[in-house]
Design a binder for these strands. Structure first.
Lengths: 211, 211
DNA sequence: GGTTAGTGTGAGCGCCGTTCACATGTTAGT
DNA sequence: ACTAACATGTGAACGGCGCTCACACTAACC
């Protein structure tokens, strides 16, 4: 015993049982590791080390590494949702939409490792937390699109918008698009969103289909 | 010696030196592992095992695991380019563009592990092979966009289009969008592309800015 | 107070990436 | 042709990883 000598006993947030709430402590530890050292540093053992327990302890709370990653991803989704809401409470013009898009990409670039855990890893696609969180994002985007473009096909357009912004995030994240300064990124994202939303049918040989 | 008893000696493609061209053999082995077992199965040791050499041999040709991954990614880029060119040699309408988009997403879903190596991994962003290949993709998309939308801002619109398609690929890959049947995916991609390219300015409160 | 279930421990398995001293085969200089 | 230099592959080793299992402790319940 006496591995930990401080009062890490009862007070951790949302403790569901008596001593220590390791479950939550592991998620925080994992998030810290992610912010500090990127995805490379995130291992079950490292998280356990940081939480002050033996390497095997996490398995009492998470079936395997992927399960912990899913929990981490879930808080990532929540934080992304908050971040977007902060960027604009209820976007209803293309400019508002562009602002939200910029925020989405900024989140990805500010917390690349977390973003990659949320989206880049194939793990536990079907975890309940994950599908719920992504469904929330989808409906959020859907609501925006319906406000901005009431006459368009909401399903197609909202997946398109999400994909556009998501793609911009990943392309910047992977260095396919220059992301040296935040301003340049913001400008590019904004320009891309506006460009795609102002392509007039006049540019195409086909006649416009009135909705 | 006699570790390998077959004729794996001189004939491997593009052999630059005397016996075996391990460099290329490792890439093929890595590609095979990727197709067979996903990203989990891809390790330097496994590739070396499959190539019939000791675990340390690869380090004569690749500085580390990431370097091998970059080489794998490079062939992935080439194959993606071929695949897109096959889908449509010189797209010039929105329908052509949608067809290419569908091909892009289909490639991602047919070879998910390879696609993830190409885009999902943060490794060796600055490897020469990688930047060359992605530059090729960018200019390819740029050419299409210029043919389809001669009056639009080519830079903004082509990054937007690439991001849109790339985002669609990743969202399907990660299960954020249902990808149970190829047809459903193709329909969704096509719809998204068309939706985003037919949003008329009439839907927005702002007056159109003539270019 | 004693049983029982929930939690954490410690040792251990096999795999991984990576390094290093060494062996081998190829090439080049004379 | 002989040797020196070099390029390539070997084998053992290190530490870290995910994961499992038998065991110890501790809280809770009867």
């Amino acid at each position: 015993m006496s591995t930990w000598e401080d009062g890490r006993s009862v007070r951790t947030t949302g403790g569901t049982y008596h001593h220590g709430d390791l479950r939550a402590a592991l998620v925080s530890a994992a998030l810290e590791l992610l912010e500090e050292g990127g995805a490379t540093e995130l291992s079950l053992r490292a998280a356990a080390r940081r939480a002050g327990v033996a390497p095997s302890a996490p398995y009492r709370h998470y079936a395997d590494r992927d399960a912990l990653l899913s929990a981490v991803a879930a808080v990532g989704y929540r934080e992304l949702a908050e971040y977007l809401a902060t960027a604009h409470p209820s976007p209803s013009t293309t400019d508002d939409l562009a602002a939200v898009a910029v925020a989405y990409v900024r989140f990805a670039l500010q917390r690349p490792a977390l973003f990659r855990v949320m989206f880049g890893e194939p793990c536990d696609r079907d975890s309940g937390e994950r599908v719920a969180a992504t469904a929330a994002i989808a409906t959020y985007v859907g609501a925006i699109v319906e406000r901005c473009f009431p006459t368009a096909d909401p399903d197609a357009l909202s997946t398109a918008i999400w994909a556009l912004v998501h793609g911009l995030a990943f392309l910047h994240l992977d260095g396919k698009l220059d992301s040296s300064t935040p301003d340049a990124v913001a400008a590019r994202v904004s320009a891309a969103v506006h460009a795609v939303l102002t392509v007039s049918l006049a540019n195409t040989p086909e006649p416009p289909l009135v909705p």
